[in-house]
Amino acid sequence: MTHYLLRRLPSALVVLAVASFGIFAMVRMVPGDPVSTLAGPDATPEARAAIRADLGLDQPLLTQYVHWLGQLAHLDLGTSYRIGGQVKDLVADGAVNTIVLTLTALLLASLAALVCSVLAVVLDNRWVNAALSFGNTLAIALPTFVTGLVLILLFAVVLPVLPAGGTPPDGFIARPDIAAQYLLLPAVCLALGAGAALTRFLTEALRTEMRQPYVTTARALGISRRRIVLTQALRNALPSAVTVLGIQFGTLLGGAVLVEAIFTWPGLGGLIEEAISGRDYPLVQVLLLLSVTVFVVIQLLTDVVHAWLDPRIRIGGTGS
């Protein structure tokens, strides 16, 4: 197992290294100068030079990059140019909101996929299948910004039962019931696409499994179809479902930016928009790097879980 992890690690690290340099270099090459943004249009050349030196922008690119990596290693994420606060604090605040939102959505999506696909395969009923397939196509076809709007229109404007946006005023812990109300719409909106894709995949995977010869063996032994789905087919479909879940997590991460904008949810998405329009280099870098790191780690994790779930990979070797 560790052997397997070690084999995957180098390529993940290479991706991270290249991505981090890419992010760093790209942000530097962007048109638009933070110095002029900070100093204002009327600043003297001396004042500009002072700001430039202050920010370390007069150093060669590679030096800046190494310096930056060193800072990252010490969790010194620098100071935001424009907002002025510590990048660390800004990111931490936004991250909590984004993580709560994304994980809730992930949980909803996985649960929905599990329930719907098992139901479809166990019941194997024409009408149930048609209904699920219809709902599924619709959920995939509706872009996030569309469902977001429809949800707000329905549950906050037409039937004002849920808040149209914002985070719970008392945080997530103090009043979980209120927090749930605030979380519901954005999480559902975010989960819909990923959940539908996951359901589609899992249903197809389960159906494929149910056509496998080992299922015929089990049925010939007098094991009921329902039990075979639950204890055998699902277990076989799980490794690849985990991989798909990992990919969907990336979609969720991207979708979160949008959902946060729709529901005025103060997470990393809003922060990144703000940082880019303000040409706030330290913040942009950290946010982009963060998202890539999370994604690469998730990919690595799903690979490892996949291998762990499949005894053919976990326990190598074959008889003859």
């Binding site: 496998q212 010869p213 080992y214 015929t216 063996t217 089990a218 049925r219 010939a220 032994l221 007098g222 094991i223 009921s224 055998q232 277990r235 076989n236 779930l309 499949d310 005894p311 053919r312």
Partner: peptide, 23 residues
């Protein structure tokens, strides 16, 4: 289902795929 396995059982052609690979 009550008859299968209890009164009639079956062995198949391809042993490579007749068993559940993850159990």
């Amino acid at each position: 289902t009550a008859v299968r396995g209890r009164r009639v059982a079956m062995v198949f052609q391809e042993p490579q795929t007749a068993l559940n690979p993850v159990r």
